[in-house]
């Protein structure tokens, strides 16, 4: 029999998890926007807004220490991060476009090098996804093969019901365990009717054809036409649920400091700058080309997945109005 949970009980679930010493992360108000942040109580959960930043930071923080060093009388002491101190986390109220990006990121972080920071957080996190009933003109999840009801990446998936509450779908063992832990909060419902999901999230793009065009068009005047306006900031990459480039910096002094891993973006001029001073991506259009190529060709070549979930954040927040959905349509039309 299908399980359901009321909104009240969903908030109660958060409180119960907190009592049981889980870290609970979900959309929370930060000024006028929402961000995925640790919740201090169930009441704080924001249900009607797509958070400004994606949920990737739960696994891939904006900035984290990866080791510390200190010069002592005994010599240089290097201290590793105690991975066991990472919190057991429940990520709640995650939009399908954010949840779907997590398995995509798994590929790159567990490829030739196993990124223990990402993977440890991933192991310790249960994801409660939530279907979208609202979209805007920047949303294009359906165009890249997902949908407002996509369950990819979620352990439990909630779908709003007509008349309130959520239908609850168990997708993994982790999800099952969470459900089994708080059985009283979920009830069996026979006649649960799902609310209509968000529409207008874009007609399906032919990603195969787009990739085929990208295979042949590393050099194309299109790149300059679309990216000459690019200002070279990292807003698109930093808001993106799937962009995962990072830089590593040692900060502090020679006596005491930290090695830190933090977000980086291919739009930055310094991203590919060599120590010699040579920069293979010397102009902005080459940098923007890399963004498209990485998402729709290189990642596909390597892992058979697309590095874009159609959340639309880069469209909404590009300082110069670059619209990746429009660019994909343009490429699709050129590949006829």
């Amino acid at each position: 029999m299908p399980k359901t949970i009321t909104e009240h009980n969903l908030r109660l679930l958060i409180d119960s998890l907190l009592k049981d010493r889980f870290r609970v992360v979900g959309p929370r108000l930060a000024g006028a926007m929402a961000l995925y942040e640790p919740l201090a109580k169930g009441e704080e959960l924001v249900l009607d807004q797509l958070p400004r930043r994606s949920a990737k930071e739960v696994f891939f923080p904006v900035c984290e220490n990866i080791l510390s060093f200190e010069r002592t009388e005994a010599g240089l002491q290097v201290t590793d991060v105690d991975l066991s101190a990472m919190s057991e986390t429940v990520l709640v109220g995650v939009r399908p476009c954010d949840a779907a990006a997590v398995p995509v990121l798994d590929e790159v972080f567990s490829w030739d090098y196993k990124d223990e920071f990402f993977l440890e957080r991933r192991r310790k996190t249960t994801i409660i996804g939530m279907a979208c009933t609202k979209s805007d003109d920047a949303c294009f999840c359906s165009a890249v093969g997902l949908s407002p009801g996509e369950t990819k990446g979620s352990d439990l998936f909630l779908t709003p019901l007509l008349g309130g509450g959520y239908g609850c779908q168990v997708l993994t063992d982790k999800g099952q365990q969470l459900l089994a832990r708080y059985p009283k909060l979920f009830v069996d419902t026979v006649d649960a009717r799902l609310a209509p999901l968000a529409g207008g999230t874009g007609d399906r793009l032919d990603l195969k054809r787009i990739k085929a065009w990208l295979d042949d068009n590393f050099e194309s005047p299109l790149w300059n036409d679309i990216a000459e306006r690019c200002a070279g900031c990292g807003a698109c990459a930093f808001l993106c649920p799937a962009c995962h480039c990072f830089d590593i910096n040692d900060e502090g002094t020679t006596e005491l400091g930290h090695r830190r891993k933090h977000w980086d973006a291919c739009g930055f001029g310094k991203f590919t700058n060599h120590a010699s001073g040579h920069n293979p991506r010397d102009l902005q259009n080459k940098r923007y080309r890399n963004r498209i190529m990485h998402k729709f060709k290189y990642y596909d070549d390597k892992f058979g997945q697309t590095l874009c979930t159609g959340c639309g954040r880069c469209i909404r927040h590009c300082p110069v109005g670059i619209d990746i959905a429009a660019i994909l349509r343009e490429i699709e039309s050129r590949s006829q």
Binding site: K19, R23, K41, E57, V62, C63, N65, M86, S87
Partner: peptide, 20 residues
């Protein structure tokens, strides 16, 4: 101070959870 996502679980954090 660290951004929240870069923070590790600390005794203080656990204490805060206990007080909820």
């Amino acid at each position: 101070e660290e951004c929240w996502s870069g923070k590790l679980d600390t005794p203080e954090l656990q204490e805060a959870y206990n007080n909820i």
